[in-house]
Design a protein around this nucleic acid. Structure first.
Length: 270
DNA sequence: CATCAGGCGAGAC
DNA sequence: GTCTCGCCTGAT
């Protein structure tokens, strides 16, 4: 067990922020997560978060995964005080963090996310993992499924992918898995590229457009200047920033602010 | 029954 | 380059 105190860490907000589709509430206000081939349970009371893992695993894996070295307090404090909308959105989203998630998993997850809702995105991914992912047992005896490898999905039939509820995205997943498996797109190189180069490379994948590429850059490659524009963000941009969002002021924190805006727009009054 | 969900590719121009 | 259109599926 590892306990931390951090007023800029919120399990429920991270869960609902729409970047991680394999984290969900379980019994007793606890949360469970399957990521990086591992299973983790955690719970939160106020600012205290307890992770069910050893200190060694926490330091080696989860500290980086949850981006615990980044100063989110400072980022929120740096929001323009005259920008009432952004001040409100950032404060509302305090606790959200940009996770360092697996690249291949994010590629597939955000291809699935297009023209889709979070509830069904989770369902699609769950079915993909249960059908194709390696079955494992956690330290506390919970059975879980790892995210399927590129090779596995490259070998899956279109009919079987359809059966996971992916719909017209099935062919995107299939062809993209082939591209990665055969080395046409090298995932290892993506991590060493800058934002522009990584985005351009991701756009070569069938089913990956500008918005999905930005999500992958932000949530897997930690390119925090990526600013994914979806229907929610476009709506807010039109209403709050008719002259354009001040990217020049926020630079590499733009993507983090995007998450606050997205979460605020998605969940307020719901 | 129509519309919409964190878009994208293909084709027309 | 920009625009339009069709698309799986499930919830409302």
């Amino acid at each position: 067990m590892v306990t931390i105190e951090d007023k800029n860490f919120s399990l429920p907000k991270i869960c609902d922020s729409g970047q991680c589709f394999r984290m969900e509430p379980c019994s007793g206000g606890r949360y469970r997560l399957v990521a990086l081939g591992r299973y983790l349970e955690a719970e939160q009371e106020g600012d205290r978060i307890t992770f069910d893992c050893t200190q060694e695993e926490f330091d080696l894996v989860w500290k980086d995964y949850f981006d615990l070295s980044t100063d989110y307090e400072g980022i929120i404090a740096g929001v323009d005080k005259d920008d009432a909308y952004l001040v409100t959105a950032a404060e509302y989203g305090r606790g959200i963090r940009i996770l360092n998630q697996d690249l291949w998993e994010m590629i597939v997850s955000f291809i699935i996310s297009q023209q889709n809702n979070i509830r069904r995105i989770r369902k699609c991914i769950r079915q993909l993992c249960e059908r194709y992912g390696e079955r494992r047992t956690s330290g506390n005896g919970t059975v879980y499924h790892d995210f399927p490898a590129p090779e596995t999905l490259a070998c899956a039939s279109l009919d079987d992918l359809y059966a996971c509820g992916l719909g017209y995205r099935s062919k995107y997943i299939s062809r993209t898995a082939h591209s990665v498996h055969c080395g046409e797109v090298d995932l290892g190189k993506l991590g060493r590229m800058d934002y522009d180069a990584a985005k351009k490379e991701l756009l070569r994948l069938y089913g990956v457009g500008v918005k999905v590429a930005d999500c992958i850059c932000l949530f897997a490659l930690h390119q925090t200047d990526a600013f994914p524009r979806d229907t929610h963000i476009n709506k807010v941009m039109a209403a709050q920033y008719p002259g354009g969002f001040p990217f020049e002021r926020y630079g590499k924190y733009s993507g983090i602010l995007q998450q606050y805006i997205f979460y605020y727009d998605l969940t307020e009054n719901k």
